[in-house]
Design a protein around this nucleic acid. Structure first.
Length: 303
DNA sequence: CCTCACGTTAGGCGATGGCA
DNA sequence: TGCCATCGCCTAACGTGAGG
């Protein structure tokens, strides 16, 4: 073996010259590296699993909403889709199961949850009869749901949302929508307020992936590099007259979920920044920043 | 830039009545 | 009876203009 260590070896491909000793070191280093990589991979997977568990424990069940597709509906010619309709649709999708089938009602004798039938729509949506029929018609016309005529089962188009794993191709334009948060918002509002609640869906494309701040560079995770949206920018996104910026701000900020704000204003030296409550919408995958965000929104605000 | 008061607009609701 | 379109009323939502 001593001889081996003193021998000189030449790599035919690269022309690199190494002694046996150096070769030995290289071999063990690469073995260690591979081992470390394996450990790292395991660690990463563990962390991901822990994250999914944590997020469900903290915020409950959620689905992934593909908001860019959903928002495209507003541009559909002749469909007259407004933000109120978008919000109602998002609310409806909080009832899907892992097959995108709408479910409603309690467990019956330990069996599966009941299926939501077309006739249940009125009760679920809580709108006037006229409005329910119009809402239903629009869902069908725009192919947002399909109805099984035999069973009355309604299935939401997977183009707009789904439950379970998120495909990489959808990562840039999807967001976790937490069922309890949205249901709470819907229950606490009347139909006239749905429009305002739908505005938050329109702001989702500007939500920073890690910090839930409304900004221009949503993929940026370094806080120092984030370019926040001003209230004037927000007005332009939502199609409001910039002149009324402060009133829009007040309207948006006064909306609450279970007594907690849905949107928060951060202020420093005449610079404003707006963030969204992660109890409703959250894109990221960092448990620590999520926890601190939740804490921030849970601080009791004295009036 | 901001706030405030005022006026107009338009969305949503319930009642109504026609129709199968 | 059940379904649907229409009408009038109510009110929030939004724009405007004055004034700071």
């Amino acid at each position: 073996m001593n001889n081996f260590r003193e021998e000189i070896f030449i790599n035919k491909d690269t022309g690199q010259v190494l002694s046996g000793k150096e070769l030995e070191i290289q071999y063990f280093e690469s073995k260690e590296e591979a081992h470390n990589r394996k450990l790292e991979g395991l660690d990463k997977r563990k962390k991901k699993e822990a994250f999914e568990e944590c997020i469900s424990a903290m915020l409950g069940a959620f689905n992934f909403t593909h908001y860019s597709e959903t928002l495209k509906l507003m541009e559909t010619e002749g469909a007259e889709v407004d933000s109120a309709f978008i919000f109602r649709f998002i609310y409806l999708t909080t009832f899907i199961d892992f097959e995108n089938v709408l479910r409603y009602g309690a467990k019956f004798r330990g069996k599966d949850k009941l299926i939501m039938e077309v006739k249940d729509l009125g009760e679920v949506m809580g709108l006037s009869r006229n409005h329910v029929t119009k809402f239903k018609q629009k869902l069908i016309d725009l192919k947002l749901i399909s109805i099984d005529d035999e069973t009355g089962t309604m299935t939401v188009n997977t183009k707009y949302c789904h439950k379970g794993k998120l495909k990489n191709s959808l990562k840039g334009s999807s967001i976790r929508v937490f069922e309890e948060g949205v249901k709470e918002l819907y229950r606490a509002s009347n139909s006239k307020e749905h429009k305002k609640l739908g505005l938050f869906i329109q702001l989702l494309p500007y939500l920073n992936v890690q910090h839930n701040v409304l900004c221009k560079n949503t993929e940026e995770t370094n806080p120092a590099e984030i370019k926040p949206l001003t209230i004037q920018d927000i007005c332009r996104v939502l199609g409001y007259n910039v002149k009324n910026a402060r009133r829009i701000e007040k309207d948006l900020i006064s909306i609450t979920v279970g007594g907690k704000p849905l949107m928060m204003l951060h202020w420093h030296n005449f610079a404003y920044m707006y963030s969204i409550n992660p109890r409703i919408f959250y894109k990221g995958n960092d448990i620590e920043s999520l926890q601190s965000l939740i804490n921030l929104f849970d601080i009791r605000v004295r009036g």
